[in-house]
Design a protein around this nucleic acid. Structure first.
Length: 437
RNA sequence: GCGGUCAUAGCUCAGUUGGUUAGAGCACCAGAUUGUGGAUCUGGGGGUCGCGGGUUCGAGUCCCGUUGGCCGCCCCA
C-alpha cells in the first residue's frame, strides 16, 4: 500500500512555520555577516566514505545511506564539518587566512525523532580555519552568543559551557594514565553528570579497577568552575604543557570578557563532547531555565582537514540547530507571531476601476512595494476587512468618482484618514507615506 | 534499535453497555451588504473515524496486526 504521508521526522513548512524558520535564518545570517564570515553551500548527497573516514561505524548506523544507480555508496549529509574540511582543504593554498566561513543547510540523520530532534533539520555552521591560537575560539564563541542573544535571549536564558579536551589529556597524563586510558576516561567524564559512578564501568572492564585516589583526583578536577580553581588544581604538577594551556585559557576568557560576554560563559570541565575528533577547547550552549538538550555545540578539530586528505590546517567550528532554537524562542515568547504580507491594499470598485487599478498596482510593485488586492469584485466592507488582515498600512481606493476626477483615494488604515492623490503621483505618494510612517 | 502512550473535519475535542445517515466550537467559503474595517445573523463545503484484518445481525466503539504522533531509553556530529 502506498502511503502519502510525509516521512517520519521530516517537516513540512506551511507559511506560518516557514515564517518562523525564516526569522531564525535571517538573524543567524545577519550575525555571521557582522562577524565577517562568508557564506558557502555544498552537496546534500556525499560519498559514504566521507563519514566513515571521520568517525567510524557508530555514526554510520545513524546515516541516511544507500547505494545509488551507479553502485556508489552514498549518504545524505548528517553534518557539514567533513564537507567543509574537504572544500577548504582543496583550496587551502589560495584562501586568505584566517578563513571564516558559515552556512545554513539541511541535514539528515536516521534516528528516532522526538522533541527537539527530527530526522531532517537545519543547522547554522560557522568555522575558522588556519588559526591555531585561542583567537579563533574567542571569535566563534562570541558569534555563538550573538546567534542566540540576537533574538533577545539574555545571559539568564542561556550559557556557553567551555571545556578543554587537551587540558584533560595533559592532566590525566600528569596523573600517569596512558593515552588510551585517557580516552576511555573522557567518555566516562562525559556521562558522569548524568549517570554518576556507573559512568566508569566502561573503563574498569577495559583497564581494570581505577585507584580510589586517582578517581578522587578526576572527580575533583571535574568540579572546577573557574580559572582560579583551575590554576589551584594544576599548581602541584608544575608541567610546562599545563602552564602553557592555562595561558590559552586566560586569553580566551579575557578576550570574551573584553567583549562584555563574561556573563554568558562558564567553565565546565564536564563538557567533553561525544566524538573523538575534537582536539582542544570544546563548548556547548545550554538553556539555563528549561530542560532542553544542548542548543549548540562545537570545538577545535585540528587534525580533521589532514585526515580527509588536505593539508595540516587547524580549525574550530560550531553548529546550532533550528529545532531547539525555535522551541526555546517560543517558550520565551520571542517568536514573532504573524506573517504580514502587504504594504498596500488596493480596494477596487468594479470592472472599469480594475483596469485603472491594475496599471498602478504593477507600477507600485515594480517600485518594490508589496501590493495585494481582491481577485473578485467584493463589497467595499469586505475589501477593507481584507486590507486590514493583509497587514497593509494604506489602502488605495479605486472608485468611479475618483477615476472621473483623475485621482486615487489614499486611506491611512491606522489613522483611518483619507485624502485624494492624482493618479500620476501615486507611486511617489505611497513612497512618501511608507518611508515616513 | 527498545519501552510507554495516543490516533474522530485544517485545529481543539464530544460521541452512552456495540444500534438509524458520525457531531460541536474555532477556521474557511457564500449571502444578508454595489462606497469604508476585527461585529451579527443565515447558509455552505470539508471525514475511507490513521490503515488492514477479525468477532458480530450490526463496529468510531471490542480483539489482533500495522503505520504514524508524543514521552522516555540508546545516541547526539
Amino acid at each position: 500500500m502506498p502511503s502519502f504521508q510525509s516521512l517520519p521526522g521530516f517537516r513540512e513548512f506551511y507559511p506560518e512555520a516557514f515564517a518562523r524558520r525564516h526569522h531564525i535564518f535571517r538573524l543567524w545570517r545577519k550575525a555571521a555577516y557582522a562577524y565577517g564570515f562568508q557564506e558557502y553551500d555544498a552537496p546534500v548527497l556525499e560519498p559514504l566514505d566521507l563519514y566513515r573516514a571521520k568517525s567510524g561505524e557508530e555514526v554510520e548506523a545513524q546515516l541516511f545511506s544507500f547505494t545509488d544507480k551507479g553502485d556508489r555508496e552514498v549518504a545524505l549529509r548528517p553534518e557539514m564539518t567533513p564537507t567543509v574540511c574537504r572544500m577548504v582543504g582543496a583550496r587551502a593554498g589560495s584562501l586568505k587566512r584566517p578563513i571564516k566561513w558559515f552556512s545554513i543547510a539541511e541535514f539528515y540523520r536516521y534516528e528516532r525523532a522526538q522533541r527537539g530532534r527530527e530526522r531532517a533539520f537545519f543547522q547554522f555552521n560557522a568555522d575558522v580555519f588556519g588559526e591555531s591560537g585561542p583567537e579563533a575560539e574567542i571569535e566563534l564563541i562570541a558569534l555563538l552568543v550573538q546567534c542566540l542573544a540576537g533574538f533577545g535571549l539574555t545571559a539568564e536564558d542561556f550559557s556557553i559551557r567551555l571545556s578543554d579536551r587537551d587540558l584533560w589529556f595533559f592532566y590525566l597524563e600528569a596523573l600517569g594514565f596512558t593515552e588510551i586510558q585517557a580516552r576511555s576516561l573522557l567518555s566516562a567524564i562525559d556521562k558522569f553528570e548524568k549517570i554518576g559512578d556507573d559512568a566508569f564501568e566502561g573503563y574498569t572492564t577495559q583497564h581494570g579497577e581505577l585507584a580510589p585516589a586517582l578517581k578522587a583526583k578526576i572527580l575533583e578536577f571535574l568540579q572546577v568552575k573557574s580559572l582560579v580553581q583551575m590554576e589551584a588544581a594544576l599548581a602541584p604538577f608544575g608541567s610546562d604543557k599545563l602552564a602553557k594551556r592555562l595561558n590559552d585559557w586566560r586569553q580566551v576568557l579575557d578576550g570574551l570578557a573584553a567583549m562584555g560576554l563574561a556573563p554568558f560563559v562558564e567553565v565546565d570541565l564536564g563538557v567533553v563532547r561525544g566524538l573523538a575528533y575534537y582536539t582542544g577547547f570544546v563548548f556547548e550552549a545550554f538553556d539555563r531555565k528549561g530542560d532542553l538538550r544542548a542548543l549548540a555545540g562545537g570545538g577545535r578539530y585540528n587534525d580533521l582537514v589532514k585526515k580527509l586528505g588536505g593539508p595540516d590546517l587547524p580549525a574550530v567550528g560550531f553548529a546550532i540547530g533550528d529545532v531547539t532554537t525555535g522551541l526555546l524562542l517560543e517558550q520565551r515568547g520571542l517568536m514573532p507571531a504573524l506573517v504580514k504580507f502587504a504594504d498596500v491594499y488596493a480596494v477596487i470598485g468594479g470592472k472599469a476601476e480594475r483596469t485603472a487599478a491594475f496599471a498602478d498596482i504593477r507600477a507600485l510593485r515594480a517600485a518594490g512595494w508589496r501590493v495585494d488586492y481582491a481577485f473578485k469584485d467584493l463589497a467595499f466592507g469586505k475589501q477593507f476587512k481584507a486590507a486590514n488582515e493583509s497587514g497593509a498600512r494604506i489602502a488605495l481606493i479605486y472608485g468611479g468618482d475618483e477615476l472621473a476626477r483623475g485621482v486615487v483615494k489614499v486611506r491611512d488604515l491606522t489613522a483611518r484618514q483619507e485624502h485624494d492623490v492624482p493618479r500620476e503621483q501615486i507611486v511617489a505618494a505611497v513612497r512618501d507615506f511608507l518611508a515616513h510612517g
